[in-house]
Design a protein around this nucleic acid. Structure first.
Length: 363
DNA sequence: AAGGCGGGGGA
DNA sequence: TCCCCAGCCTT
């Protein structure tokens, strides 16, 4: 909680008016801003978690064409839903979303609950998403504290808590509650986020264009660049991977579905392994294919390409090989698919790149 | 409280 | 390079 003095310096009524009138005049035209359907607002908020607006827009439009209602998503084929999310990242979001939507269909008669406890109990709905949907779709005066809001509020009120710590969120939620514009919580919450996204940016905020400059205590003291306080995360790990595209005599290719939990859960991939140091990747892969799939692989000696893939917490360096197998034995999570069908499966981006490269070699 | 979980764009 | 993005879940 900011000290009382910080909050008391704010003329709350004027702050609300300056912020919301700026928002009404300047807000970006975004697809979900044409919608009132709580389901559609909800989907947009899930997609927007840790994901930029420009990235989300085409995914949102396609998703709404494919799954326009609670019922359509609740009844949709899981593979089709994963394919619609392919490339967007954080795939547990869509698994949880479909699970939650099914619960809405079954337990709430298909109506997204407007009750805070009920909505927050759904899978994948946390404090931010809960506040966002309840305020935007139902007009409830709940805070929706994301990274933008913490940055904006830390500057307005000079809040020095470390926003990297989970405990900080409650500080900002309480601050937002105290200045909440009860007449229009939807516009107020979205205005705080819009300000953070377009004016009150992390580095070099555009304070001279800011509609609430007069209310900003960091600007008054000239310390807007020192806020918010955020500790750095540790550097990431590097992992060397070997992957192989194996073709059967009939021209089909072996793919495998990843485990149902963990990194890139339920996405499809080519056979791959973490490479032990000091061992020939080709022979390591042949032994792996034999042990894992019971298949006798003949892998070309030269690697086809290598791919660097950077996640937020680790890096894969993938050596890619191609080869052939003489038999087709499918196991529980493997499939042999034709080259035309392959692109109907949802792959991680790194393995999409593997296929793009191998496909191009055929010419 | 800390770490896993994707991918891309901007400084 | 590093940061950060309309965060949530598990441990």
């Amino acid at each position: 909680m900011p000290e009382n003095s910080a909050l008391q310096k704010i003329n709350i009524n004027k702050f609300q008016k300056d912020l919301v009138s700026w928002y009404e005049a300047e807000k970006r035209d975004l697809p979900w801003r044409h919608e009132r359907d709580p389901y559609k607002i909800w989907v947009s908020e899930i997609m927007l978690q840790q994901t930029r607006v420009d990235t989300v827009i085409p995914y949102f439009n396609r998703f709404m064409e494919q799954f326009p209602t609670v019922e359509s998503l609740a009844g949709a084929d899981e593979e089709a839903v994963m394919k619609a999310w392919e490339g967007l990242g954080y795939y547990s979001r869509v698994r949880n979303l479909q699970s939650a939507v099914k619960e809405v269909a079954e337990s709430y008669g298909g109506v997204v609950p407007a009750d805070k406890d009920e909505f927050l109990s759904l899978k994948g709905v946390g404090p931010y998403t809960g506040g966002a949907v309840l305020s935007i779709a139902y007009g409830l005066p709940e805070p929706a504290v994301d990274g933008n809001v913490m940055r904006v509020m830390s500057r307005i009120l000079t809040i020095w808590d470390d926003i990297a710590k989970p405990s900080a969120r409650k500080i900002f939620e309480q601050a937002v509650r105290k200045i909440m514009y009860e007449e229009d919580p939807s516009s107020f919450n979205q205005a705080l986020m819009e300000l953070g996204a377009t004016i009150c940016t992390p580095t070099s905020p555009a304070c001279l264009l800011c509609p609430v400059q007069n209310h900003c205590q960091a600007f008054e003291e000239g310390i807007q660049r020192e806020l918010p306080v955020k500790t750095k995360k540790k550097s990431d790990k590097k992992i060397r991977m070997g992957a192989v595209v194996l073709e059967a005599p009939d021209g089909t290719v072996l793919i495998e579905k990843r485990p149902s939990s963990g990194l890139l859960a339920n996405l499809w991939q080519f056979p791959n392994m973490e490479l032990p140091t000091g061992i020939n990747p080709r022979s390591a892969l042949e032994a792996y294919v034999e042990a894992e799939y019971g298949l006798n692989a003949c892998i070309q000696p030269e690697k086809a390409t290598d791919i660097i893939h950077i996640f937020s917490h680790l890096t894969w360096e993938i050596d890619v090989y191609i080869g052939t197998i003489d038999a087709k034995t499918e196991k529980e999570r493997t499939k042999f698919v034709s080259k035309e069908d392959l692109e109907t499966y949802a792959f991680s981006v790194s393995h999409q790149k593997i296929w793009q490269h191998v496909k191009g070699m055929d010419k």
